[in-house]
Design a binder for these strands. Structure first.
Lengths: 371, 371
DNA sequence: CTTTAGCACTCACGCATGAGGAGTGCTAAG
DNA sequence: CTTAGCACTCCTCATGCGTGAGTGCTAAAG
């Protein structure tokens, strides 16, 4: 059985994968020689295909159906056979331009990244917001909305901003609020959540008169905000491009070779994955921990729900400061070259953008920002 | 032709609509008498159904299929026949509790409202963020991120906050930034976008030394932010509950009485509507302009894409200050009583929450708690 | 030993056919 | 006006068959 993978057989594998990615229909031996004008006959191709099937790179659902790549086949293709391309310069320029138009607005970057990934790779996309491993407090502003309502604007290192309203018993002047804010800011500056909690615990024990009742209310809110923020940071996945993915033939019943019921069920499944991020659980932290573009094909990571899907992920961000993950998700029959180059480009672009934001802030905190 | 709508016929219409809403299958005369133990025979029901069909409240696709309500039938049902219910107290309490948990975080309200609407009405939901007709400037903070990068936090009336980063040529001290911010804030306070533009135009003409170059940069950014904000305010529709809607039988091929292809096509259509808000265009401003819960059934508003969907909308917000729209969207065969009561409850809840935020800002702060 | 032509075989797909059944429309009697 | 009875319509599902694409195998040629 030990079939030998000659040069030609790998070439045929490459063609089969490419062809299947393009047409979404099982590829026949005859069709290959016709389309590519191969120098040998369809019978030869059939023999080679049979060999590739022995090794586990191809299958076919029944006799008299063309060949289809297996997960292992895709894997081999991605690692050894694929032409590594980049996005065209025109595309790159267009994407850069779009990001330029929303310069300064970080939340827009995320949205835009999702949209661009989806459009360019013609599949669904996912983007997690950039997060520091540990939120570090930077600044706090208190703005009166009216008598008993105060808006708290929390600024963390890395330009992460969170706003929250806060109701109080007695009205306070703007000047009062300002003083309170700078008192608290001075005290908490550069602290992580744990540190803030410690300080507060100490202050409570010693009943330092440093903070008033109002101040303590604000600080409680800060802690609460930091907690919830860190919690949901891990969960939060922004996804987009469902529509793009749905225009792939596997979701169009008339084109899907299995029946329409399947197509719908598949679709519902896809939606659930995207919405809840179920089945992606391990992938994100994994991608955060590694460099370069990761490709997870079909059932490779065990999640049964994902068996029909592949994911192309990359980390983006600055050093160890602030990082996120972005990627493309679609049927295993997706264009890996295109997805990979898209993900690679966008992640490096986002890294650069974030880099500008953080240039002065990374490790050496020499600028200190003392008020 | 001129069929008279007797009491009994209307009762039958009511039963047919309710039954169809419940089962999603055409309702047969025989089935009605059996299920409800009516005091008359199926033949009588058939006659009445025929009469209701003459008036245009029912149809059937072919002989030997049960009756199905038309858009007009649903309309009549909603306006005259429906039992007007409210959400159960337990449900209300649960919902209030969820909102309580995210008190203070306005963006979370919107997300939560969408999720709750979807879950409670078992259909898709849409929520627009609360917007003032005119953005009014309130406050501005400048926070240094690092040497050449400044974070601008804009606060508008009604607790609307927008943040943006801004790169500058020369580093500035925190004190410098603070003074600049308060200079600009003082000058622009309470202004609408147009007014800000006027002030700047005058200042430029007269070359008042009041603002420095840096200040002008910030103000340009303020104007730009206000513009884009107002523009995208109209567009921005937050939608949720696709999955809930998709669990309705019209989207499940094996249950849909037409073939599976249709179900998928329908689904794709629904997705497009929800994502882009196409087909909803006129509805939102319309809902903003009117009070109470609006029900738009099927093709009533002309948009062909929406022919198979109904929308239940309500305005929420405070007086003329700050308003948004929220609602439920689903197949025409949705439970109108439930959707309407859900939408009514959530909109009044959101109005109250916003009311608290604005109490001091609107004219006479009155507990608008009556629904 | 590899390649190739030839051919039988397999299996999905499309289409027609027919039985079964649900539900109506009509008619005539109560 | 109501209702029983019945013919009629038309969907649904299962069955069967022809068709064609594509393979697997075999035997001969390179």
């Amino acid at each position: 059985m030990a079939a030998i993978l000659t040069e030609r057989r790998l070439f045929i594998l490459k063609l089969v994968v490419q062809q299947f990615i393009e047409t979404a229909t099982p590829v026949a031996s005859e069709a290959l020689v016709r389309k590519f004008g191969l120098g040998f006959s369809s019978a030869t191709v059939r023999n080679d295909m049979a060999a590739l099937e022995d090794v586990g790179y191809l299958t076919h659902l029944h006799t008299s159906a063309g060949r289809v790549p297996t997960d292992a086949g895709y894997r081999f293709f991605v690692e050894n056979l694929m032409d590594r391309t980049s996005l065209s310069l025109a595309e790159q320029r267009m994407i850069r331009h779009q990001f330029y138009q929303v310069r300064g607005e970080l939340d827009q970057w995320i949205q835009l990244a999702g949209a661009v990934l989806a459009r360019t790779a013609q599949n669904a996309s996912l983007v997690t917001p950039p997060r520091a491993e540990q939120l570090r407090f930077k600044n706090l502003e208190l703005i009166s909305i009216h008598d008993t309502m105060v808006l708290v604007v929390l600024v963390f290192h890395g330009g992460i901003v969170k706003q929250q309203t806060f109701s109080v018993d007695t009205a306070r002047s703007a000047e009062d609020l300002r003083r309170s804010a700078s008192r608290i800011s001075d005290c908490l500056i550069d602290m992580t959540m744990c540190q803030v909690e410690d300080v507060i615990a100490q202050d409570s024990l010693q009943a330092t008169p440093c903070f008033g009742e109002f101040d303590h209310g604000v600080i409680d809110l800060v802690i609460h905000a930091m907690q919830t923020f860190e919690e949901q940071a891990r969960e939060q996945i922004h996804s987009d491009g469902l529509l793009e993915m749905l225009s792939q033939p596997e979701f169009i019943p008339s084109l899907a070779r299995d029946d329409a019921e399947r197509a719908v069920e598949r679709l519902r499944r896809a939606l659930e994955i995207l919405k809840s991020g179920r089945g992606l659980g391990q992938l994100i932290p994994q991608a955060l921990a590694s460099d370069g573009v990761q490709v997870i094909i079909g059932g490779e990571h065990g999640e049964d729900e994902m068996r029909e899907y592949s994911v192309v992920l990359a980390r983006y961000g600055v050093g160890g400061t602030v990082t996120g993950v972005l990627g493309v998700i679609g049927p295993t029959r997706m264009s890996y070259p295109r997805s990979i180059s898209t993900v690679r480009y966008i992640s490096s672009l986002m890294s650069n953008l974030l880099g500008d934001l953080y240039a002065g802030e990374t490790r050496p905190p020499f600028e200190g920002d003392h008020q």
